[in-house]
Design a protein around this nucleic acid. Structure first.
Lengths: 243, 243
DNA sequence: CGGGCTCTTGACACAAGTCAAATCGCGTGG
DNA sequence: CCACGCGATTTGACTTGTGTCAAGAGCCCG
C-alpha cells in the first residue's frame, strides 16, 4: 500500500522547504500511486510520450543523453527528492533518458493533474518553476566544469558535490556514503574516458583524500579535495521545494 | 516612448506561439518600460538582487559564468525573444552574468509583478515553466557537446545552431547572418582555447564550408557542416512562448 | 604614424584518448 | 568445493587532441 504524503519520509529533511498541512493534502490528490523498479530500468525515454511524472522517494538513478555514434553524456545523478519529467512536454524525438541505478521507489503523478496545479495552486506552480531554475543553475555549473576544468578537477568537484548532496539527504555513515555508480558512469558524466577517470582517481586514493569502492564513496580530506577542485570552501546545498 | 506589446516586433515571428489579444493586454500590464544599453553592459549580476526581469527585443548578448582563477564559461548566446532573470531568486553569491554584446533593447518587467502572474494567469505561468524546461533541454545538449565532442565538432555544431536560431528570427541575408561575437566568445562557449578555436575554424574557411568574419556568419555547405558536427540532418527550432 | 585590438600561424608541452592486457570479485554450474 | 566466465577495475605503452607561448599580420582610430 502506498504511503500517504503525510508520512513522506523525505518531507522533513532540512534540505526541503517545509510544507503546510494544506499543501501536503493538496499534493496527495495528485499522487496516483507508487512505482518500484529494479536497477537498470528506463523511467523516461523521449519524455514527450510519458503520461507520468515522478518524484524519487528512494534509490538512485541517472539522467543522460546518448548519441548514435556511441557516446553517452550523463547529465545528472538522480537522488531522492528529485522531480522527473518536467521536460516531458518539450522534447521531440531527442533522447533524454532517465534510468534507475539501484532499486527505486517513485511517487507517481499524472501529467494532466499537474497542469491543474498551475490553475489551482500558484504557490506550487511557482515551486515548479523555481526548481527548473535551480536545475538550470546546476547545469550551468556542470557546463563550466566540463568546459573549463581538467580531469582531476572535474572528478574532485563531482565527488564533493555528490557527497554534499548525500549528506543533505542523510546518507552519511561516518565518512562514507553509499554510491551505487560505476566508474563508467562517472566518466560519462565528466566527459572523460573510463581509463582516464580511473587514473585520475588513483592519486586521490593513494593520498587518502577520497576513494570510491564497493559501492561506497569515502571522503577523508574534504578541504584538500575542494582545493584540488578549486571550489569555494563551503556552500551548502540550496533548500528547495519538494514537488 | 516605449512600444506597446500590441506592436511587439517579435510576437508574430513563427518561432513564437501566437498570443490572444487578451494575453497581450495582460502582459502589457507588467511591462514597466524599455531599457536601451550599449555593448558591453552588464544586465544581470548575481541575479538574486536584481529587481527586474527582461525580455530581449533587439540585439545580442552573452550569458556566462566566471571564476576567480580566470576562466569564463559562456552558457548561451542571448538572442531576441529570450527571457532574462528567471534564476534571479535562486542564485546566492554565485556568478552568472548576462552582458550585452551589441546595443540592445530590452523589455523590462518588475519582479514582483511576475509573481502575480502565477496567481492570475496560469497559462502564462505555465509558459514560464515551459521555457525553463526548454532551457534545461538546451543546456543538456550543450553539456553533451562539451563532454563528448571534439573541438571541430563543437564548433560546427555551434555555428549550425546559431545559424538556425538566426534564421528563425529573420536575421538571414542570403547565406549570411550578423554575428557580433568574437572568436574568444566562441572559444569560451566551447571550452576551447582561442588558438584552438581559430585553428579549428581554418579548415572550414579553406574548404568553403563556413566562415565568420566582419561580424558576419556565413554558411555555404550546411549538409557538410552538419556532417562534421554529427548532427541529425534537420531539426527546426522549437516553437516557444514569448514572455 | 603609432597604439591597441583581434585574428592568424608556428613550435612545443602536456592532458586525455585508445588499445591491450592483467587482476580482482563474484556467481554459476560441474 | 573448485573451475570457469563475466563484468568491473587497474595498469602500461603509445597516439592524438588541445593548451601555451610567442610572434606576426591586419585593422581601426586617435
Amino acid at each position: 500500500m502506498p504511503a500517504r504524503c503525510k508520512n513522506c519520509p523525505l518531507r522533513n529533511w532540512p534540505l526541503f522547504d517545509p510544507m503546510t498541512d494544506e499543501e501536503v493534502n493538496f499534493m496527495q490528490q495528485f499522487k496516483t500511486g507508487e512505482m518500484r523498479v529494479d536497477p537498470g530500468t528506463t523511467l523516461m525515454n523521449e519524455g514527450s510520450d510519458s503520461p507520468q511524472r515522478f518524484t524519487t522517494l528512494k534509490g538512485k538513478g541517472l539522467r543522460f543523453k546518448t548519441h548514435e555514434t556511441g557516446w553517452r553524456q550523463v547529465i545528472s545523478f538522480v537522488l531522492p527528492g528529485e522531480f522527473i519529467g518536467l521536460q516531458g512536454g518539450v522534447m521531440n524525438k531527442m533522447q533524454h533518458l532517465v534510468e534507475s541505478g539501484t532499486r527505486m521507489i517513485l511517487c507517481v503523478f499524472d501529467r494532466k493533474a499537474l497542469w491543474t496545479l498551475f490553475r489551482d495552486h500558484p504557490g506550487r506552480a511557482h515551486d515548479q518553476t523555481w526548481m527548473a531554475a535551480l536545475t538550470e543553475h546546476v547545469l550551468g555549473e556542470s557546463m563550466a566544469a566540463l568546459g573549463q576544468r581538467r580531469g582531476i578537477e572535474r572528478i574532485s568537484r563531482a565527488l564533493t558535490r555528490l557527497y554534499g548532496r548525500g549528506a543533505a539527504l542523510g546518507f552519511l555513515n561516518g565518512s562514507k556514503m553509499p554510491l551505487p555508480y560505476q566508474q563508467q558512469d562517472l566518466a560519462d558524466a565528466l566527459g572523460l574516458s573510463l581509463v582516464r577517470t580511473n587514473k585520475a582517481l588513483q592519486p586521490l586514493r593513494d593520498r587518502n583524500i577520497a576513494r570510491g569502492y564497493d559501492g561506497q564513496l569515502e571522503i577523508l580530506k574534504h578541504a584538500k579535495l575542494r582545493e584540488i577542485a578549486t571550489l569555494a570552501p563551503s556552500a551548502k546545498p540550496v533548500v528547495r521545494p519538494l514537488i
